[in-house]
Design a protein around this nucleic acid. Structure first.
Lengths: 231, 231
DNA sequence: GAGAGATGTAAGTGAATGCTTACATATGTC
DNA sequence: GACATATGTAAGCATTCACTTACATCTCTC
């Protein structure tokens, strides 16, 4: 071993390789990424990379489960401290839309890379996306679902054929597609001139779709206040 | 030239290669598809394929513009014969959702392949998806937009911050994500047990999101009748 | 029927790809 | 301090890749 390169414990090296692989796989896709690129991005030789991950495919799947574990349980505390109410529902929906409609340069690189991996999974067998949604999205969905049920019971929302569970996933799907739309450098469909108005419209669309009454939305949703709160 | 293979005019051969390439590129992605596979799927030698399309990338982009032209103007007449009204809006939204929520084995293979190409484009630079949306989705969006405006003016819909244009795209985004969700063999998020109920809920969500009043939806939307009409 | 040009293929080409081999250095243990 | 083991690399290996070359056959024109 050349003395120029620091000696590093095995598991830490493993993580560094995974971190680098996330970037490369996200940019190039599975087939587009070469093992040379992957090794170079991690700052190691191919041989060492292949010692940690016997095949390129092993690295890819290891990366996927790594992402699932890393993100899991990140915002459980925030959700736990939130009561089930119309206000919470409005809050959650605004949070989702604002997050998904961030301009691409405001999205941290690792998060963007994760999004690309997820999008790729939809085109492949969907296994990664399925696992990710189950581990990470579930609490979020459950919170929306229970808040929606309370909102309807309290008279803030109407009874409609849209069941709470399905409605919660609809909101998630809708916001995911808003993000997908912005994933290329230039958005596929340019929605509006100003981001803030865009978020506000998306929030209204989602809340109305869930059956929340316009009066209740007006009462609970103050976009500019929310924007300040979350920046 | 071996006598076993029929001689075919150049432009027809070109189309056959494109048809085969659609299948292969959709299944494997750009980097995953090899020129051998592409040629074999088209039933020609690589050399001939390269005579028609100088590089693999040329074939890919030619395929994309081929798809745009092929689909364009397909249902203009149906949309043209539709008046701007709440009924039309309900009809259009149901049509979209029913179409996007078909079980994968009921979606014709070329259409499914096109969807995969589109999804890939979102991960890449989005240029193909952008072109496709402009050429193909525009009329649809415009019809939803104008019908929505009429519905609101007639009192069937409320005035909300969601503008007609944005709302129309929201519906399109929402339905697109429903389809993406079903694109892998097994859906990423299993929404409901029965398809019909799933479509009905999606339609309600979209119409409510646009600001259509529940009473108006109930008046114009009769899922089972629509399902019969369209089968 | 002969020349021209289009349609077609078999058999490569160099370069790149995923992966291995052979070997060197560091570290912990007794 | 020497042995075992883990960390690391340089230099390939066989294969596959996108793409060419050289050549054969068909069809149209005159």
């Amino acid at each position: 071993m050349p003395p120029s390169l620091t000696r590093i414990p095995s598991d830490e090296r493993r993580e560094r390789i995974l971190d680098a692989a996330l970037r490369v796989f996200a940019e190039r896709g599975f087939h587009g990424a070469t093992t040379r690129e992957l090794a170079k991005a991690a700052g190691v030789s191919e041989a060492l990379m292949f010692r940690h991950f016997p095949t390129k495919e092993d690295l890819y799947t290891a990366l996927q489960s790594h992402c699932c574990q890393a993100k899991s349980g990140e915002k459980a505390e925030m959700l736990g401290s939130l009561e089930d109410s119309t206000a919470s529902l409005v809050m959650l929906v605004h949070y989702m839309m604002a997050k998904m409609l961030r301009p691409p340069d405001r999205v941290p690189a690792p998060e963007q890379a994760l999004h690309r991996l997820l999008a790729n999974s939809f085109i492949e067998d969907g296994a990664f996306a399925r696992g990710f949604m189950e581990n990470v999205g579930r609490e979020f969905i459950q919170k929306i679902e229970s808040s929606l049920a309370v909102a309807i019971a309290s008279g803030d929302g109407i009874e409609s054929p849209v069941q709470s569970r399905a409605g919660a996933w609809f909101v998630q799907h809708f916001s995911a597609m808003l993000m997908l739309n912005e994933m290329p450098g230039q958005p596929v469909v340019p929605l509006a001139v100003d981001r803030a108005g865009q978020v506000e419209q998306a929030v209204w669309f989602a809340l109305l779709g869930l059956g929340i009454k316009p009066a209740a939305i007006r009462r609970h949703y103050h976009p500019q206040a929310f924007a300040l709160l979350m920046s």
